[in-house]
């Protein structure tokens, strides 16, 4: 995996609990089930915590919990599934979420520009060439019609 954060390729400090990493490790991304089951013990943790949500996540259910997370990853099962775009927009504008919002899953370099415009500041790509291409694609369109 290669990560773009704030329009640069960087080493990813985060890991996924689902990959078998121990929770103790700092910067772990968990899923909503795990969060709900372990909320009490996790909410006191001092190391940064991330949450990966699916495209059909009801954000209202998480509204009060967002402060516990330094990162929200939205899973995109296939690149033609546009739900993540609305979720990111809502996270930023409705819930004023200031942490990292990361696109994870089937993401094309050609989509990097729109993804960043709706509020994603981090994009995961399968390999370095895709990520470098995505960086180039970020500056393809210099203007847009939509405000904000």
């Amino acid at each position: 995996m290669t990560l773009i954060k704030d329009k640069q390729i960087i080493d990813d400090p985060w890991c996924y609990l689902s990959d078998g990493h121990a929770l103790k490790a700092s910067h772990t991304i968990i899923d909503p089930d795990f969060w709900h089951q372990n909320k009490r013990s996790l909410s006191g943790a001092s190391s940064p915590l991330g949450l990966m949500i699916p495209g059909d996540q009801e954000l209202a259910e998480l509204a009060n919990d967002l402060t516990y997370f330094s990162l929200i990853a939205i899973h995109i099962p296939t690149f033609v599934d546009g739900r993540a775009y609305s979720l990111a927009k809502l996270l930023r504008e409705r819930y004023h979420y200031k942490g990292e919002v990361r696109a994870v899953g089937d993401v094309l370099p050609d989509q990097a520009h729109y993804l960043t415009r709706v509020g994603f500041d981090a994009l995961e790509f399968t390999d370095h060439p895709s990520a470098s291409l995505a960086l180039k694609k970020l500056s393809e369109l210099s203007v847009c019609y939509q405000p904000g």
């Binding site: 690149f79 546009g82 775009y85 729109y114 847009c144 019609y145």
Partner: peptide
């Protein structure tokens, strides 16, 4: 036109 949120409906 080129709406970033509504291009993968």
């Amino acid at each position: 036109t080129l709406h970033p949120e509504f291009s993968y409906l």
